[in-house]
Design a protein around this nucleic acid. Structure first.
Length: 428
RNA sequence: GGAGAGAUGGCAGAGCGGUUGAAUGCGGCGGUCUUGAAAACCGUUGUCCGUUUUUCGACGGACCGGGGGUUCGAAUCCCUCUCUCUCCGCCA
């Protein structure tokens, strides 16, 4: 949620930013400023009346102590109209506040000034590429066929147990999944991220704080009986650790990493894009989260991008880093870099990570603040990134590393797998 | 799931209708003392909103788990929700 003070003091920047995000209702900005003016006016009035009442009450207190009951009763009568007036002002004030809030939660975050204009992924900018595209012969298979050939993943079985989009990993497929999780967690641990193993069900306040609600209501699974949401990403429980807290500047940056399964309803998805591991209802992801001082958050964003890059490099996957344009940016993000990995058999780039700076957008919602060394209390900046999401990494690994003799395990994972190659006759 | 107890400032812990934003202790910060440190002593110590100020600040309002009520006045009384603890039951 954009702080109202930002809207007030940087109106033009906010408008320009929201326009870049293709936000259609820019007139809401003017409306909110007007409402805010009214609200402050109203509060000043209310406070003044409240003061009068408090003064009277105090006087009544002293009078009663001095046994001057008649005078006290007189004063009591005086409070009647005052109270009524306060109540009126109070109710107007509340209405104004509610309306302001309603608008505020509808406004997406203001993008960073470096974010390119654009409407869709077509307009994103490729900032960097790396790794070599594998040369596969024309008989190369997509991962869903390889998964079946080597008995690694059973999509039909998952559909039987649960439904489509809930694959069953088996044998070396299961172990490969576990190896990746272990590798990603170990790597993050070595880079100073404190590991967290959080709940994967969260309450409404948490879902709201990170911005999933109200924006993504309907994309999350919801447990009606207990009014709990099943997390679409570890970002939700991890960032919410710091909801309603004030962190000392010297404790920054806070770096956390968590592995969790993630659940997304993906309502409205269909077609070839959802084949195999490309789009699932349940998948595994390692998420890194940082809480940072506003002055340092963009430097930290670059560091996080570098870190994620080191992961895809370690897995020897061809990748590219994409800077999202305004129209492709998520509701909460100010600047996002996507990582894409090349899936050789599908001949497509698959998104495997999204690294974002939310600036104070989430922090404002969840009242996550920093006590600076100067003694000031300011909103923190929050950042997070996938490091990494497993299914499409797995898809790319299977496809890119297929050989006539089996599927080659990347060197870095050999120690986790205990084998160098998955083949049809057991593995070596 | 059943029965009971409780929720107060960074922490511990008083207050149980009238200058109580809240005693006291610990912690934190500043100072005195010391070659330095410790100890001791003195001072200080939350958050949000608004008004005002060039800044420091000053003033006003709100906040004692959340919401509502009673009252001139509530941390204190009432209702309700949430959470925590203890005992019983169930259980990986």
């Amino acid at each position: 949620m954009i702080p109202i003070s930002t809207i007030r003091t940087e109106t033009e920047r906010v408008k320009k930013g929201l326009k870049k995000k293709n936000f259609p209702n820019l007139e809401l900005i003017d409306e909110i400023i007007q409402l805010d003016n009214q609200k402050r006016q109203q509060q000043t009035n209310r406070d003044e009346l409240q003061k009068q009442l408090n003064d009277l009450s105090r006087q009544i207190g002293t009078l009663i102590k001095e046994k001057k009951n008649i005078e006290a009763e007189k004063l009591k009568n005086d409070t009647f109209f005052l109270k009524q007036e306060i109540q009126e002002k109070e109710s107007i004030l509340k209405d104004l506040e509610n309306r302001i809030n309603e608008i505020l939660i509808l406004l997406p975050n203001v993008p960073h000034e470096s974010v390119p204009d654009g409407y869709s992924s077509q307009d994103n900018i490729i900032v960097k590429g790396g790794g070599e595209l594998p040369k596969l012969d024309c008989k190369a298979k997509p991962h869903w066929e390889l998964a079946e050939d080597y008995d690694l993943i059973d999509f039909a079985l998952g559909a039987k147990i649960t439904g489509t989009g809930f694959p069953v990993y088996k044998s070396w497929g299961a172990k490969l999944e576990r190896a990746l999780i272990q590798f990603f967690l170990d790597k993050a641990w070595d880079h100073g991220y404190v590991e967290i193993w959080p709940p994967i069900l969260v309450n409404e306040a948490s879902a709201f704080a990170t911005g999933q609600l109200p924006d993504k209501d309907g994309q999350m699974y919801y447990i009606n009986l207990d009014e709990l949401y099943i997390i679409p990403t570890a970002e939700v429980p991890i960032t919410n650790i710091y909801r309603d807290t004030i962190i000392a500047e010297d404790d920054l940056p806070i770096k956390n990493v968590a592995y969790t399964p993630c659940f997304r309803r993906e309502a409205g998805s269909y077609g070839k894009d959802v084949r195999g591991l490309n789009r699932l209802h349940q998948f595994d992801k390692i998420e890194i989260v940082q809480i940072a001082h506003p002055d340092k958050s963009y430097q930290i964003l670059e560091e996080m991008v570098c870190y994620v890059e080191s992961l895809v490099q370690a897995l020897e996957l061809p990748y590219r880093i994409v800077k999202l344009c305004g129209g492709d940016l998520s509701f909460t993000s100010a600047l996002t870099y996507d990582f894409e990995v090349f899936s050789a058999a599908q001949k497509r780039w698959l998104e495997v990570s999204s690294v974002s700076n939310f600036e104070n957008f989430q922090a404002n919602r969840m009242k996550l603040r920093i006590k600076t060394n100067m003694g000031k209390t300011i909103l923190a900046h929050t950042l997070n990134g996938s490091a990494l999401a497993l299914p499409r990494i797995l898809a790319a690994l299977l496809e890119n590393n297929q050989t006539p003799n089996g599927i080659k395990i990347p060197k870095i994972l050999v120690k986790y797998m205990g084998i160098e190659m998955i083949n049809k006759f057991g593995s070596i």
